[in-house]
Design a protein around this nucleic acid. Structure first.
Lengths: 248, 248
DNA sequence: TTAAAAAATGCAAATACCTGCAATTTTATA
DNA sequence: TATAAAATTGCAGGTATTTGCATTTTTTAA
C-alpha cells in the first residue's frame, strides 16, 4: 500500500469518527506504529489533522475540552439545537466562547442571516464558512485560560452597543446563587455582556446544574432562557421552574 | 511497444484500479522501471495521473481537506525561522494573518517574552499555548476572504498605538511597484498597520517576488526588512538590494 | 509517585529515485 | 534516400525515501 493511500485512509477514518488511535491504524493498515506515527506527523504538518498523544483528531474538532467526553458532547449538541431555535433572521446576537456555544454556532443553519458579535476567536473561525452570517470579533487581550478576549477594551466596547440576545455557557448555576463563575475577568466580561443584551440565554449541561462557583455573574431573574439537555419538564429543573425561569 | 501505447495502458490500469506500482508496470510492459518512471512523470506533468513514491494514483484520488494545504510550506518555514531572529524580548509586535505569519508564530521560541497584537484569530489561537507571549486581538468585522479582522474599527484602533515591528506577508512585491495587494479592505488595513509601526518586515516566498497586484500597499523604501526563502545574496534579489532594501 | 503507553531518536536494510551516458530508434530534412 | 538531429531506452552509480527495530525520553493515568 502506498503512503498516500494510507494517508487517505487515515483522513477518511478521521472524517468518519473524528478521531483515530495509532494502534488501531497500525493493525488496520498492517504497518508498524512508527510508520503510522510518521504519517500522522506529516498530515499534521500539512494541517489536515491534529495529532495528539496516542492518535489524531479531526481539525474541526480540536477545541479545548472537547476530546474529553463524548457524552457531554451529545448533551451540548442537544442544547445547541434548542438554542438555535431561539435565533431569528436579522438578529444581533452576542456570544461567549464556551464549548456549548461552539456547538451552537457550528450547527447554525446555512439559511440563517444574523450578525454575531463574539469575544471568541474559535467562534469566529467556526463561522468563517457561513455564507449569511456577519461575524464581528470584539477584540482585547486574549485569556489563555478561558480562550476568549477579556479586559477593559471589551467591556467598554460592550457598553456602546445593544444586542438582541446573548448566549452564554456557564460553569455554575444554582437556584439560590444564580449564575456563577470562578474567573474574575470572565465574571466582569459576562456582566457587561448581559448588561448589553435584551435577552440572556444560559446554556448548561445537566451535570453542572446546582453547582456554585466562587463569584456571582447574575441572578436567575436576569436569565431569559435556561437551556439544558433535559426536557423542560424534568424533575431536576423543578426548582428553577418555581423561580420563574423560562426553561427550554 | 510504443510510448503512447504504454501510456494508454497505464491510464487504463489507473482507471481500473485507481493506482499502479512502477514495479508491476515494468514487468507487465516488459520495460525497465526507469522507463516506467519516466512515463509516470510525463503523465503526471500532463495532469493525467498523480505520481507518488512507488507508483501513481488516479487524479480523482483526492483527499478531503485538501484545500487547507499550505502552499510552499517549506519555504514559509525557512522564512519564519529568519523572521523570528528579528524579534527580541520585550518588543511590541504587530502581525497580519497570512500563512507565513502563522508559520512564524507557530515557531516562536518558548523563552521569548513579547506582546503580540494581531488582526488574525488564527494567530491568536496558535499562540494560545505560549507561556510568555501576551496576545492582543484587534477586533472588528471578520473578513471571510482574508481571514482577518478588517474595517474602520481596526484602522482607528491602529491609529492610537505605536508598535516596534510589523510582520506582513504579501501577495505581490516588485522593485517598481513595491508591496501590492488585491483586496481593498486588506490594503487599507495594511497601510494602517505599516503607519503604526516603527519597522516593517515583509515576508514573501521567492515565487511571489516580482509579481504585481492591483493595489499599492507601500513602496519598497518603507520596507525595513524583506525576508524570502532565498539567501540574501541570491541573484534574484539583486534589484531589491540595489534599491537599498535590507534583505534577510 | 510510579508504571505503562506513546513518542522521539538513531540506525540499518530495502526500495525508489535521479543523473549522466551510451546505444538504439525515430523523425526531420536536404 | 541519406544523414543529421532528436527522442527513447537501459544501465551504472550515487542519492533519497521509506520502513521497522532497538533504545531512550516523555507523557499519561492510576
Amino acid at each position: 500500500m502506498l503512503k498516500k493511500e494510507r494517508h487517505a485512509f487515515i483522513i477518511k477514518q478521521i472524517n468518519l469518527h473524528n478521531k483515530v488511535l495509532s494502534a488501531d491504524l497500525a493493525i488496520a493498515l498492517n504497518v508498524s506504529e512508527d510508520t503510522i506515527r510518521r504519517d500522522l506527523v506529516e498530515l499534521d504538518e500539512s494541517r489536515q489533522i491534529v495529532k495528539v498523544h496516542g492518535g489524531a483528531l479531526a481539525k474541526s474538532f480540536h477545541y479545548p475540552f472537547q476530546h474529553n467526553d463524548v457524552y457531554a458532547l451529545e448533551a451540548k449538541k442537544t442544547i445547541a439545537r434548542k438554542a438555535i431555535s431561539l435565533i431569528k433572521s436579522g438578529m444581533m446576537v452576542l456570544t461567549g466562547g464556551g464549548s456549548t456555544v461552539l456547538e451552537m454556532v457550528q450547527a447554525l443553519p446555512l439559511d440563517l442571516a444574523v450578525t454575531i458579535f463574539t469575544i471568541s476567536p474559535l467562534v469566529v473561525l467556526q463561522l468563517a464558512d457561513h455564507p449569511l452570517v456577519t461575524v464581528i470579533l470584539i477584540g482585547g487581550e486574549f485569556s489563555k485560560d478561558s480562550q476568549v478576549c477579556v479586559g477593559s477594551q471589551v467591556v467598554s466596547y460592550l457598553n456602546e452597543i445593544k444586542f438582541d440576545m446573548c448566549f452564554l455557557g456557564t460553569n455554575g448555576i444554582s437556584v439560590n446563587d444564580g449564575v456563577t463563575d470562578s474567573d474574575l475577568n470572565v465574571v466582569h466580561l459576562k456582566k457587561a455582556m448581559i448588561h448589553a443584551s435584551e435577552q440572556l440565554v444560559i446554556m448548561c449541561i445537566a451535570e453542572k446544574l446546582n453547582s456554585v462557583q466562587r463569584m456571582n455573574v447574575c441572578q436567575l431573574n436576569q436569565v431569559s432562557y435556561l437551556i439544558t439537555d433535559l426536557a423542560p419538564a424534568d424533575d431536576v429543573l423543578a426548582d428553577y421552574r418555581k423561580k420563574g425561569v423560562q426553561l427550554y
